[in-house]
Design a protein around this nucleic acid. Structure first.
Length: 485
RNA sequence: GCCCCCAUCGUCUAGUGGCCCAGGACGCCGCCCUUUCAAGGCGGUAACGGGGAUUCGAACUCCCCUGGGGGCACCA
């Protein structure tokens, strides 16, 4: 649109776990950037860490992206299929002297790094193998020492690049130590594979988390050493943080996207919410369709500071989406979710009624299904929440009389929603209906809140409703008289 | 420890020198509506971290401090 060039972006997750909100947000922003600019969205799986990568995660990540509606135009490319390219690139770097063989073990490097840090020096690689002679190298090889390849970073000067969201970022090369690009088992490390792939896949814009900001200098140096000259721009997104303001990670409150699906969130609502984390449209709208976000999205409106994932706001937004859903669609979702829980006790017509009656009141699909539990659960398994029941009973005067009156009414009334309104018989006792509602809700629906009571009773049917109220009446009777009266 | 990034209501944000004694949204509080609870309507509470500098004038520019975060792996 505003940039008709051939934008090519990629989402490049490591298949070392499920996709969490941070990763999903990165994927989304890449997708948005591609769609806004009419570009190409590439999916690339960075599985160069064989020890941690798992095939099932490769599948899981794709499932999640599909669920969110983030379709990719190319890929998934697996780095595991491209190892020869990385080896060739490493060979070139070795050849040109931009990289060198390193015979230090990870343990040695770590130990020396720790010692350096204690002594107040930078903990990075100390350059021990930087300038080995041929003879020294031969000696180490003959000793059978492990051999990795390290990239030689410049000794002096500065590295500067212009970040699309943050502006100019500069670092002194003296603070960037040499880093491994090929492991001693000859597998490539992230930096190498990343640089090679971004070049060969003709990526034009790298959009990723701010935790990768510092590594950009290394990637740029690598690209340079490899002779890649095509322009590549970077944009670093603010991190998503937990309640403690620390980066979200799997062991730190990061929730798998699948959990959102299981908990009844709508993908469009989640996408909408995620888009608002670090970005806002110029006009301040909060509820936006994907197309609207695509139309407005660009990196120059991405914010700079970390954002906290606020479930309260997501709940509100998800509720907006549920309320906006066509009844048929909501009914189908309720039916599916309820069937998953109660099997063939669930019928489409009832599910549709639940959807119709509950649509206005639920924040999530799951919450709505929970409201239908009283209806679909087997009668012998129906147990009112003991806490709700106790609270309601304690606050209800003349509970026994109320229940008797309601039961009598329901046993004889015509079975319409209008007539399952149980207020008249309660009023006839000289009691305000609102005072006894919690008790009746709990008796019929098992909890103090849920679907509107008269609809619930009507849906449940005369026999089941009366049975539950009678059971409640029995419980009251066994109490040593209504406590509050 | 060193390097980098960041800094507006509790939270997500608008704001790019005067329109801002700072706007919106979520949350929270109150009222209304009402079949308890929600939803909805109305109203309210609440922020430019501190100090300098530039300027007739700073939330917006610069510097310092403070605070927060990230990075410094044969993880990505």
């Amino acid at each position: 649109m505003s940039d008709p060039g051939n934008v090519r972006v990629r989402f490049a997750p490591a298949p070392t776990g499920y996709l969490h909100v941070g990763g999903a947000r990165t994927a989304l922003f890449n997708w948005l950037y591609a769609r806004h600019h009419g570009g190409t969205f590439v999916l690339r799986i960075e599985d160069t860490d064989a020890a941690r990568s798992r095939g099932e995660w490769i599948v899981g990540i794709q499932d999640t992206l599909r669920w969110l509606g983030l379709d990719w135009d190319e890929g998934p490319y697996l780095q595991g299929d491209r190892l020869d390219r990385y080896a060739a690139a490493a060979g070139r770097l070795l050849q040109s002297g931009r990289a060198y063989e390193c015979f230090c073990t990870p343990e040695e490097v770590k130990a020396r790094g720790d010692a350096a840090m204690k002594a107040g020096r930078p903990p990075g690689y100390d350059g021990r193998c930087r300038d080995l002679t041929d003879a020294q190298r031969a000696e180490r090889v003959s000793e059978g020492r492990p051999r990795s390849v390290r990239f030689r970073t410049p000794d002096t000067g500065v590295s500067t690049f212009t970040d699309l969201v943050r502006g100019e970022v500069t670092v002194e090369w003296s603070t960037v130590s040499d880093f491994v690009i090929v492991r001693s088992d000859s597998s490539p490390v992230f930096f190498l594979a990343n640089a090679v792939d971004d070049a060969e896949m003709e990526i034009t814009h790298v959009i990723r988390g701010e935790d990768l900001l510092d590594s950009t200098h290394r990637v740029l140096a690598l690209r340079n050493a490899l002779g890649y000259t095509a322009p590549l721009e970077f944009g670093h997104l603010p991190l998503l943080v937990g309640a403690d303001r620390a980066k979200l990670s799997k062991r730190h409150g990061a929730v798998a996207l699948e959990d959102f699906r299981d908990r009844g969130y709508l993908p469009d609502a989640l996408v909408n919410y995620l888009a608002l984390l670090g970005w806002a449209p110029a006009d301040g709208r909060e509820v936006l369709t994907k197309d609207e976000v695509v139309a407005e999205f660009d990196l120059d409106r991405v914010t700079h500071s970390a954002a906290f994932f606020d479930y309260k706001k997501l709940d509100w937004l998800n509720g907006e989406y549920i309320r906006a859903l066509p009844l048929d669609g909501l009914a189908a979702q309720i039916f599916d979710a309820a069937t998953a829980r109660w099997g063939d006790r669930v019928d489409p017509a009832s599910a549709r009624e639940v959807a119709r009656i509950g649509q206005e009141r639920a924040a999530t699909i799951t919450a709505l299904v929970d409201m239908a539990e009283f209806l679909f659960v087997a009668d012998e398994e129906f147990t009112p929440d003991p806490i709700d029941w106790g609270d309601a009973l304690a606050k209800t005067e003349r509970a026994a009389a109320v229940l008797d009156a309601v039961i009598a009414h329901l046993e004889t009334c015509e079975w319409t929603v209008e007539l399952t309104d149980v207020r008249p018989p309660i009023e006839a006792l000289g009691i305000k209906p609102r005072k006894v509602m919690p008790l009746l809700y709990t008796a019929v629906e098992g909890r103090r809140s849920g679907l509107p009571l008269f609809d619930a009773i009507h849906l449940l049917g005369r026999q089941r409703s009366v049975a539950r109220l009678t059971a409640a009446r029995d419980r009251v009777g066994s109490d040593p008289e209504s406590p509050a009266s």
